[in-house]
């Protein structure tokens, strides 16, 4: 008994030593990699921790390497403050971003709303050493959606049309919609439309969708690139007064890596990224469960941009 126990302790000790040696190695190697990539010509593409960002990162990387530029992808870094920090300390060189949120991140007092205003404000607000390339037409923003029947019955295709609707309007959205300028107060102030909030805390997910389809709410706030919009033939209402902050997809890159060639490749890609294309990518991701890499490859092959 005593012997076996001593043997066990010995084995555990050896295991612990081994583990120590292993962690020593693993923490040494990536550091070495990092310094080498930072000094070479490789463009390291990072992404936020959601599928759409990951797909865009792989599209950027594949497009660049198709044009003879060495790339590496570091997907799923985290939320904005995390990957912007990674960009600033040189762990990554390029990341797909959204104009409105990025502008708010760099300048919390920014007031720009429409795509073009936001983009030019963003160009000014981007810190030195970094720049944004051309923005895509595609947006992933909050959007008001109605069912096709509702749209046809009341002839509503825009938020401005809602004033003519005679029935009381309920909006299914997260509870912050009660106070945000693009929510209930904005509808009243910008479009003169009175609506009440039905708070559903799933960010335009299945519960919000089901409430809309059952007419328990007449409007639903769903992110504009969500597959369910297309699958259920919802009508996304236009926002002619730019009440909702624009969120065009845009590449954010370190100036050191933004050579003319890199910029022209990414600008060509950006031109092709529309909201419909983003919906299709997200459908492949969340409905067909394809990997981000696979979706990026298929998309570039299909678009034949180069």
């Amino acid at each position: 008994m005593a012997r076996t126990r001593r043997g066990l302790i010995g084995a555990l000790g050896a295991l612990a030593l081994g583990a120590l040696a292993l962690t020593g190695c693993s923490s040494g190697n990536p550091l070495a990699d990092d310094t080498s990539t930072a000094s070479s010509d490789t463009v390291v593409v990072g992404s936020a921790n959601f599928p759409e960002s990951e797909i865009l990162a792989y599209i950027y990387a594949d497009a660049l390497s198709d044009n003879g530029i060495k790339t590496d992808v570091k997907p799923n870094i985290g939320e904005r403050d995390r990957y912007i920090a990674a960009l600033k300390n040189g762990e990554i060189d390029l990341v797909p971003e959204y104009t409105g949120n990025l502008l708010q991140f760099f300048d919390s007092k920014a007031t720009a709303q429409s795509s073009d205003e936001v983009y030019s404000a963003l160009q000014k607000a981007t810190p030195t050493g970094f720049e944004v390339l051309d923005q895509s037409p595609g947006q992933d923003a909050d959007s008001y959606n109605v069912t096709k029947q509702f749209s046809q019955k009341y002839k509503v295709t825009s938020l401005a049309d809602l004033k003519k609707v005679s029935v009381p309007l309920k909006v299914g959205a997260n509870s912050e919609f009660a106070t945000r300028p693009y929510g209930i107060p904005g509808l009243k102030k910008v479009y003169g439309v009175t609506a009440t909030l039905v708070p559903i805390a799933d960010s335009g997910g299945p519960n919000t969708l089901s409430a809309l389809l059952k007419n328990q709410v007449q409007l639903a706030d769903i992110y504009s690139t969500t597959p369910s919009i297309k699958q259920n033939h919802l009508v996304t209402l236009a926002d002619p007064e730019h009440m909702i902050l624009a969120q065009n997809v845009v590449p954010l890159i370190s100036s050191a890596k933004a050579s003319d060639k890199v910029a022209s490749v990414l600008n060509t890609v950006s031109k092709a990224v529309t909201t419909d294309e983003l919906i299709e990518m997200n459908t492949k991701s969340s409905v067909d469960k394809e990997s981000a890499q696979q979706i990026a490859k298929e998309w570039l092959a299909e678009k034949k941009l180069f």
């Binding site: 299914g172 997260n174 509870s175 912050e176 009660a178 106070t179 039905v198 708070p199 559903i200 805390a201 799933d202 519960n207």
Partner: peptide, 19 residues
């Protein structure tokens, strides 16, 4: 339950979190 649009004390939690 305040995940859904019902009342009760959960409202204070769910409505305050995003803000």
């Amino acid at each position: 339950a305040a995940y859904l649009p019902v009342g009760g004390l959960g409202r204070f939690l769910y409505d305050a979190l995003p803000n």
